[in-house]
Amino acid sequence: MFSYLDAGTGSMLVSILGSGLAGIGVLWKMARGKVTGKSVTNLEDASADAEESDSSHD
């Protein structure tokens, strides 16, 4: 269940940045690969976990 639109990688990053400090923190973690252990340019393999059927919203 996803929107029919592609959020777009670049647009998605900027939408996170647009939130201000909280977003900068998220982008920092993504860039440092602290969560996945991989850099932002190599996150393909980390995709499966976020596709889980978690019915709760965050």
Binding site: A7, S15, I16, G23, V26, M30, V35, E44, S47, A50
Partner: peptide
């Protein structure tokens, strides 16, 4: 890149979207 997955793992959540 599956940016969505990376963002979720880095703590991207509803409050970040709400701030945007």
């Amino acid at each position: 890149v599956n940016m969505k997955s990376g963002a979720a793992k880095a703590g991207m959540n509803a409050s970040v979207l709400d701030a945007t």
